[in-house]
Design a binder for these strands. Structure first.
Lengths: 336, 336
DNA sequence: CTGAAAGCGCTTACAG
DNA sequence: CTGAAAGCGCTTACAG
């Protein structure tokens, strides 16, 4: 591989000048700049990033840690993250945590090892100690998005999960439903607790008592939605007329369970999801769901991290707006 | 950040010894190894990867270029790629091409700039010149998977697209269908041409003439499946009784078009997809489709690339097996 | 088994 | 506007 020395020789100048011509063209005369450009082409030079990173002690790389690359929720968040990063001259390294704490640890280690300048965390399924030592005052460039940690001080981009879940529940109430079940995500997750709280408040405000057997927990997968949906729909004396699911995949699993049990949606059962993934418009019936501004979440999170890296004074956390999208999976309660 | 010097001081030895203790523990005495380990913990050392990369001129990073991160087909391929890479001590940098040739160029540039050791290409939507100069004999470590380039000599992992499409078509014929349409992916893509060829051969072998108006092209999205599905299903004098789609998302779009037009699947229309994405079991009805061994494709591709990097003698390209999965979206032809 | 020393390819403060 | 030189933090061939 040709190095900066080869370019300098070909351009008949020093390596310092080549470096300047490439990184700060305005610090160099027109003639020199042109000679260098030509020499670069001539010898087929490309800058050795390892050397630059070592010298500058920065990598212009941001690591984004995902819980699971297969989750369709994240694709648009990533697209938002990447657009801002690339514009600012940063690359994005996507790290799939794959429910593996060791892997997460090794992604975090990319920062002290000078392979990444900062981290965006899209999951809270990480060793707690790892994050505790890296709160805002530690100087570790870390931004959390989509989810958040209880009782930790970390810059975070999120939505108002309690409010969004509450609106969804209120909407079901407004359709005359009173037998409203819910399917939560993993119970330890703060956003799941918030969504559950929003559901509870929605029922309480309508004077409806919650039933423990109508509050089930899944793991955000199609499959768990299907399994828990079957339990809700064929168990016990009374059947719910509506189910609020904490994400779209589980809601789509519930739709399938209803189909298997020959329960018609929305005539006999209303189903609401959360996220508005692309697929929610292609299931049968189309899914009523809470739309999250996923692009914007990604863009805002990356902006925040880049601002932190530049030591700019930035808003510590930001809450973005959601919107309930009404489609075919919800209707008036039977007999209402 | 503490450096190797700080560790050497704390362990009362040279930096060379520290380096050895960390990278080749067997080259160092037990006592020294322990002193170094303790010193590392004491000063909170972590190796500067930029310095190591510069010195070794390798990055232990593989870049995987995806056409579009939102495409659910790739998640499992990636998981296969990552598992092999991590085991071998490599990281994976996922690059979203986003239909942007400039971005692809910059990903390729990571290799000469010493930020990546090799590239795995999961799309052929890249500037042709970029690949032409990097064929097998160029020494550029590049492996293509899932897709391939016509007339270029590049190590490739793929399936037999012609055969898989042919089997799917034969299956429809065996159900008594003779009015079989197809929905292709982007026509310039070699794998799409192969699948189309398999379809044509299936019809020819059954003595059925192809009809140009029954060979439509989409872009692999839900939406294009829906649009083209409507055209196939409401156009002209005769309606096809079966549609073979070149991926699952388009097939799911076709299912929706059929629903809108009140055409019952599979009673009045059979639909076959390709890929077997997770969603194909949760649409209504469940999709008959060609299963691709996505994990295995990923694993095999990464193994091949790592072998190439180690200069091992390796099979140049490998074809993995597919399987037709019969589900609820196909049935006997009406009146057959 | 260990150390002194060279060198990977850049960038940048300093001097002119 | 340009160059000489130091130095970023490692690894490794060489010598002992």
């Amino acid at each position: 591989m040709p190095t900066i020395k080869d370019v300098a020789r070909a351009a008949n100048c020093s390596t310092a000048t080549v470096s300047r011509a490439l990184a700060n063209p305005e610090k160099v005369s027109d003639a020199t700049r042109q000679r260098v450009a030509q020499a670069v082409a001539e010898v087929g030079y490309s800058l050795n990033a390892a050397a630059r990173n070592l010298r500058r002690s920065e990598s212009r790389t941001i690591v984004v840690i995902l819980p699971d690359i297969a989750n369709p929720f994240f694709s648009e968040v990533i697209s938002g993250l990447e657009s801002v990063a690339h514009q600012a001259g940063y690359q994005v390294l996507l790290g799939d945590a794959g429910h593996n704490p060791e892997r997460v640890k090794s992604y975090f280690n990319l920062v002290p090892s000078n392979q990444a300048d900062g981290i965006i965390l899209l999951t809270t399924e990480v060793p707690k100690a790892l994050v505790k030592e890296r709160q805002a005052d530690s100087g570790f460039p870390l931004v959390v998005a989509c989810e958040y940690f209880d009782n930790l001080s970390l810059p975070t981009i999120h939505i108002d999960n309690e409010q969004a879940a509450n609106r969804a529940t209120e909407y079901l109430v407004s359709l005359g439903h009173r037998a409203i079940a819910t399917l939560s995500g993993p119970g330890g997750n703060p956003i799941c607790k918030d969504r559950l709280a929003g559901y509870r408040r929605g029922l309480a405000d309508a004077g409806i008592e919650t039933r423990p057997e109508w509050i089930l927990e899944g793991d955000f997968s199609f499959h768990s939605g299907y399994e828990q949906g079957r339990i809700l729909l064929q168990g016990g004396s009374q059947r719910p007329t509506a189910i609020f699911c904490q994400n779209d995949e589980m809601a789509i699993g519930v739709l399938k369970a209803a189909r298997d049990l020959e329960i018609r949606v929305p005539e006999q059962l209303s189903v609401v999801g959360f996220d508005d993934i692309g697929f929610s418009q292609y299931c049968e019936p189309e899914l009523t769901t809470v739309h999250q501004p996923r692009q914007a979440i990604g863009r805002t999170a990356m902006k925040l991290l880049l601002d932190i890296l530049k030591d700019r004074n930035v808003p510590f956390d930001q809450t973005l707006k959601t919107q309930l999208i009404v489609r075919g999976s919800t209707g008036r309660a039977p007999g209402a």
